[in-house]
């Protein structure tokens, strides 16, 4: 087990180094940097001033040197300064990360709360109207863009409550914050709940055909005991994987939803930073996302062994 973890950690480090190179190159694929954007929007180009700005930001250095400076700083905990606000990247990201983390947590909570029971009901009541309804809900969840769902919720609020529940200023109490985050969390979590629903259903159906379930039924066990004690406990393994993967990949939905609901989180900030070619912010944020994804993947794999004692890593 220890050697497995060490091997996975080494692989993780390799993936992150590769990702850092890919992101660094991708951001510099097209000619033009923040100096070009600033000078173009100002409407004039003074080559001397532009060169001065590029020198100040370190953009005049060769690419390998820029990459080395970034990685060297990253390892030492120095994430650099934002090109736009000139504030340290840590100060820019610090207050935004908790907002996005809370929204992601709430979205995942909502996704599991809805997806898991509906998936079980759909499997237990296979080919009944309840199953068809759940399947249509889950397919809708996969088809509705989360930003449109967010816009629909806003439209509904305007029509029925007469106001829009968006972030205008920082909420004072946790209750206010919860009230503000619950609607975007539903918009983001709906898609994840659909995926969980579909996988729970297919996993349950697979398990319910196993011999030990038939044996339990022939022994006279009640349907509840069969469904929840025998079937669900065994069907939960692949569902755990998908919950983990969805937790890491929620950021895709968060990017657009934070934009719709005007939430000052880190996901919306990524889009703004990309548009401004604010390299330090984009590079470090993308690395953070990649780190979360690989760590969650590792945790899910390790959780496998805890949930299923038959699985042993060597």
């Amino acid at each position: 087990m220890t050697s497995y973890i060490i091997r996975r950690l080494l692989l993780m480090a390799l993936t992150l180094v590769g990702m850092s190179i890919i992101i660094f190159i991708m951001l510099r694929l097209v000619p033009g940097n923040i100096a070009d954007i600033l000078f173009d929007s100002a409407g004039f180009i003074d080559p001397q001033e532009k060169a001065l700005l590029e020198e100040e930001l370190g953009l005049h250095l060769p690419l390998w040197k820029q990459y080395w400076d970034w990685i060297y700083g990253l390892v030492q905990g120095d994430l650099g300064f934002s090109y736009v606000s000139e504030l340290p990247t840590v100060d820019e990201l610090g207050p935004r990360i908790p907002i996005t983390a809370k929204l992601a947590g709430l979205s995942l909570f909502f996704a599991v709360l809805i997806g898991l029971p509906l998936g079980v009901i759909s499997a237990v009541k296979q080919n009944t109207w309840a199953d068809y309804v759940v399947r249509i809900i889950s397919l809708s969840g996969l088809s509705l863009p989360s930003f449109w769902l967010g816009l629909l919720i806003l439209t509904a609020f305007v029509a029925w409550a007469g106001y829009i529940p968006i972030y205008t200023s920082a909420p004072e109490t946790w209750y206010d914050e919860l009230a503000l985050l619950i609607t975007p969390a539903i918009a983001v979590g709906f898609r994840a709940s659909a995926i969980i629903m579909r996988l729970t259903r297919s996993s349950m159906l697979e398990v319910m055909r196993q011999d030990y379930v038939r044996t339990a039924r022939s022994k006279g066990a009640s349907e509840n005991v069969i469904n929840y004690k025998h079937a669900l406990r065994n069907a939960i393994l692949p569902v755990t994987t998908i919950i983990g993967i969805e937790a890491a990949f929620l950021i895709g939905g968060l990017i657009v939803t934070e934009t719709v609901f005007n939430i000052p989180g880190v996901a919306r900030f990524l889009v703004e930073a990309i548009q401004w070619r604010d390299y330090p912010i984009v590079q470090n944020l993308v690395m953070l996302i990649a780190l979360i994804v690989v760590v969650v993947n590792l945790m899910v794999d390790l959780l496998y062994a805890v949930l299923d004692p038959r699985i042993r890593y060597s």
């Binding site: 590769g18 992101i23 991708m26 951001l27 895709g252 657009v256 990524l270 990309i274 994804v293």
Partner: peptide, 21 residues
């Protein structure tokens, strides 16, 4: 290994960086 690296980012984030580039 390259595929592992590319799969470490959600589809939209990767597409976002590519589209901006």
């Amino acid at each position: 290994r390259i595929i592992d690296m590319m799969q470490a980012l959600p589809l939209l984030v990767m597409a976002l960086v590519m589209a901006a580039s």
